[in-house]
Amino acid sequence: MTDASRLSPATQPRLDYVMCASPAGTHRMAYWEWGDPDNDKVLLCVHGLTRTGRDFDTLAARLSGEYRVVCPDVVGRGKSDWLANPSFYVVPQYAADMLTLIARLNVTQLDWVGTSMGGLIGLALAGTLAMSAAMRPARGDAGLAAEQTLRLGKVVLNDIGPSLSLSGLERIAGYVGQPMQFDSFAQAVDYVRSVSAGFGTHDQQGWEELTRHVFCQQGSHWVKHYDLRIAEPFAGQSEQAVKASEGLLWGAYESITAPILLVRGELSDLLTADTAQEMLARNPHASLHNVPNVGHAPTFRSNDQIEPVQRFLLA
């Protein structure tokens, strides 16, 4: 796979942050923004477990003429703060942070691209919005107008679904919390390449760009650019807990009434082909795009991966 054209200095994103809260206190969530800041057509792109918002640079640059594209660093990753209590490194907290960000952006409708964990956050948000709308007491003319309710628009779920392969989860859990330290950036690149084979084929510069924002230089060493404690609640999930959460995720997925694009790496060990077919059967608004010769997860860096997403979002 050949990476799409590289970013020029003129096409770098803007960095900002929003103050969020957890039961343990406040934290700042950084986000990267592309396009016209006054554009009310917003695309929120949310990354995977150990990644950052800069994963979407190529996709965001491509879509920034049509959208205000916002790519947060989920708390504990990248430029964002680390939580005082690592037990809150969980999807409900991440979804709450996204609602805070959406309020900052003054969004009434937005489209969503979520890779892996970012897709689960999107499902959690969709479920929360649907449940809140169903349970909220009607106010009639005394309350806010119906059109002022936040609506989730088109949704792209990148190699993720309500049912998760336990073998895929175990593979990821095996390296998430490991403290890696390298003497050079080149060694960090080799490490990312070794644990990210599912990303598919990239040239050397592509692997360097996939490494640049998930490793940072501390003194004379390169270390992971995330709080290693994100592994604690992740590793603590039992098979029973994972299965129990699937019912909630399926309900959230089925509540989405907007168009959904399921993107699946054909070699994925996290989103199985059977689960993808079940997702098509359980939501009539869903369509499926398989990415050949890629596992978990497509990186949206090449034209052949970007174009199906672009067509879906702009149709």
Score class of each variant (00 low, 15 high):
T2K: 12
P9E: 08
Q12D: 01
R28N: 07
W32K: 03
D38Y: 08
N39I: 09
K41A: 15
L44C: 06
C45M: 13
D55K: 12
F56W: 14
R62Y: 01
L63I: 10
S64V: 09
R68V: 10
D73M: 04
G78T: 15
N85M: 11
P86V: 10
Y89A: 04
Y89R: 11
V90R: 14
V91R: 04
R104A: 11
Q109G: 04
L110P: 06
I121E: 01
A124F: 04
A126G: 14
G127Q: 05
A133E: 13
A138K: 03
R139S: 05
Q148A: 05
R151A: 06
L164R: 12
G168N: 02
L169T: 00
I172Y: 02
Q178M: 10
F185N: 08
A188R: 02
V192I: 13
S194L: 11
V195A: 11
S196P: 01
S196T: 03
E209C: 09
E209Y: 08
V214N: 14
Q217D: 05
H221K: 15
H225C: 08
H225Y: 15
Y226K: 07
D227K: 06
L228P: 03
R229E: 01
A231G: 08
E232L: 13
A235Q: 12
V242W: 00
S245W: 07
L248E: 06
T257P: 00
T257N: 13
A258W: 09
L262S: 12
R264T: 07
R264M: 14
T275E: 01
Q277T: 05
L280Q: 06
A281C: 05
H285K: 11
A286T: 05
V291I: 03
F300G: 08
R301H: 10
D304S: 15
E307T: 15
V309M: 14
V309P: 04
L314R: 10
